[in-house]
Design a protein around this nucleic acid. Sequence first.
DNA 1: AAGCTAGACAACCGCAGCAAA
DNA 2: GTTTGCTGCGGTTGTCTAGCT
Length: 315
Amino acid sequence: MDVKARGCSANTQSEEDQIMDLRRGPWTVEEDLKLINYITTHGEGRWNSLARCAGLKRTGKSCRLRWLNYLRPDVRRGSITLEEQLLILELHSRWGNRWSKIAQHLPGRTDNEIKNYWRTRVQKHAKQLKCDVNSKQFKDTMRYLWMPRLVERIQAAAAAATPTSTTAVTEASTTTSASVTTAGNIGMGQMVMPQGVIGNDFGGVQITPSYTPENSSTAASSDSLGTQVSPVSDLTDYYSNIPVNNPNPDYLQASQVGYSGSSLISPSGTNYYNHGTDFQSLEQNNPWLDGADGSYNFLNAEDFFFLQQQFNFNM
DNA sequence: AAGCTAGACAACCGCAGCAAA
DNA sequence: GTTTGCTGCGGTTGTCTAGCT
């Protein structure tokens, strides 16, 4: 509905700014209710007009952001699931910082949430490795080491849930579920992204999230209060889920793909981490190793040992 | 118990693209 | 063709909180 057509104030935004001191900072419950009630009745759009007509002393931009990132009924709250992490890594490797585009493939997740996830989780690890998060080195490390491991962890979770060859990973209260077809390897394969996006060659599994707009919208009632939707939402305890004698013959192979000699070589020939990474200091100061925070470590001590052994990091 | 620190997330800012006047 | 306003996006900052010392 056209807000302008309903006889709202004809003041321009600049005039409005002068007349009414616009509020900033955190939204109050009253403001939220005003916004929700107004949009429920009149629909969204025309944000500047909407802000005025709803009696909110906020900018249109602020209203839009609040609605899209927090109040919208289909917005999902809670931790990023393994499948979502995998998607984020994959899609970011393809599109870069196109957060809104990435968010389109994660129903209920906002670009802001994904951006925050990337900055707080992923970039931290790049910093620990002393390489740029946008560098080819870091991207390939994600692609050829972390992402295959994420895939395997998803498989492990699926296998733990249902000991069949083809398992549906459906987490309680999770509106995005993924059917993980265990292809028996974590080598190069094909990934089927949501909404028909075909992933490229990593992982060796097909992940086909089975959400629909209909079921994703159910998050409004079940997840809108910050429910933790993923019991294993990150890689911290990854190895604790893998048997010592891993039955998967490709377990190490995937991680070793393309690595040779004293350097970490990607299929494209990139030579990794031969630039003097100080792993001793990393070991001493690295939060990845202690597992103390227990929430989102990509690598643990075994991973670090693996990196050192396999890739001969400078030490 | 108080202070400090880091993580997580909400919110703001600046810019670009677009459409209407 | 130009101006103006709106919207959306990505980057950045601010705030809150939990954990640690």
